Computed example of a mutant assay.
Amino acid sequence: MQIAYGYQDLQLMSTALQYDIFTGLSEAPKTAEAISCKIGTDHIITEKMLNALVSIGLLFRSNGEYHNTEISEIYLSQKSPYYQGNYIKTQKMISFGTSSYGDWAEIGEALKNGYLPASKDGFRLYDKIFSLSMKEMAIRGEAQETAEVVSCYPWFKDARRMIDIGGTHGIYSIALLARNPKLGGTLFDIPGVTELGNAIEHFKQYEVSDRIRIQNGNFFKKTDLGSGYDLAFISNVYFLRTADDLLDNIHDALNSCGRFVLKNSVIRKDRNGPLISSLLDLDMCFWSENHQLYSVDECIDLIEPHGFEIENVSMLEGCCLGTIAILIFKKVS
Rank of each mutant, 00 (worst) to 15 (best):
A143R: 04
G24R: 11
K157W: 09
C152T: 15
V193P: 04
K128E: 06
L225G: 00
G40F: 01
G108Q: 03
K222H: 06
R241L: 08
V332Q: 10
T23W: 02
H67C: 02
I267Y: 01
N236P: 08
Y82M: 06
T90H: 13
F96D: 14
I310G: 02
F156C: 10
Q2L: 14
S36M: 03
G318S: 12
E47V: 09
R179P: 02
L187T: 03
V332K: 00
D224H: 02
D281L: 04
Q11R: 10
D42H: 14
E289N: 05
E311T: 15
A147K: 10
N290V: 10
I326T: 09
F96H: 13
D297E: 00
Y75L: 01
P29V: 14
A28D: 12
M1F: 15
G64L: 00
S333N: 12
Y206K: 04
A147E: 12
W104Y: 08
P81E: 06
R160K: 09
G185M: 05
I328V: 15
N51P: 02
F220S: 15
T168I: 15
Y172M: 08
I129V: 15
W104H: 03
L282V: 13
I56L: 05
L282F: 05
G307E: 07
N68E: 11
W287G: 15
D20V: 03
L50F: 08
F96C: 13
S295M: 01
V149L: 14
N63M: 13
V261A: 04
L275H: 13
I165V: 11
S227G: 12
H291M: 07
W104D: 11
S62F: 06
I39P: 03
E33R: 05
R61S: 00
H291C: 09
Y19N: 05
W155S: 01
L177F: 01
K92Y: 14
N216V: 09
G102C: 03
W155M: 00
R213W: 10
L17K: 03
R268D: 12
Y19L: 06
I139E: 12
L125D: 04
P191R: 03
Y87L: 15
S36P: 07
D42F: 12
Y206A: 13
L132K: 01
M162C: 06
S14R: 11
R179V: 09
G197L: 05
G141A: 07
T69L: 05
Q91W: 14
N290A: 07
S235M: 11
Y7M: 11
K222Q: 05
N312M: 12
A118M: 01
D210Q: 09
C299E: 08
Y83Q: 07
R268A: 10
T146E: 03
A178C: 00
Y82R: 02
G108A: 09
G108E: 02
T323I: 10
T41V: 06
G167D: 00
D127P: 03
T98D: 11
Y238Q: 03
C152M: 08
V193Q: 07
E304R: 07
I212K: 02
V237S: 08
G185C: 00
I107L: 07
L282K: 10
H306I: 04
G226E: 04
L302V: 10
P274I: 14
I267Q: 05
S288N: 08
E33W: 09
S227W: 02
I324H: 06
F220G: 10
S278K: 13
Q84V: 11
I139C: 08
K157T: 07
S119C: 14
L293R: 02
I165P: 07
K182T: 11
S36A: 05
F233W: 00
L187R: 01
V296M: 11
N272Y: 12
E65H: 01
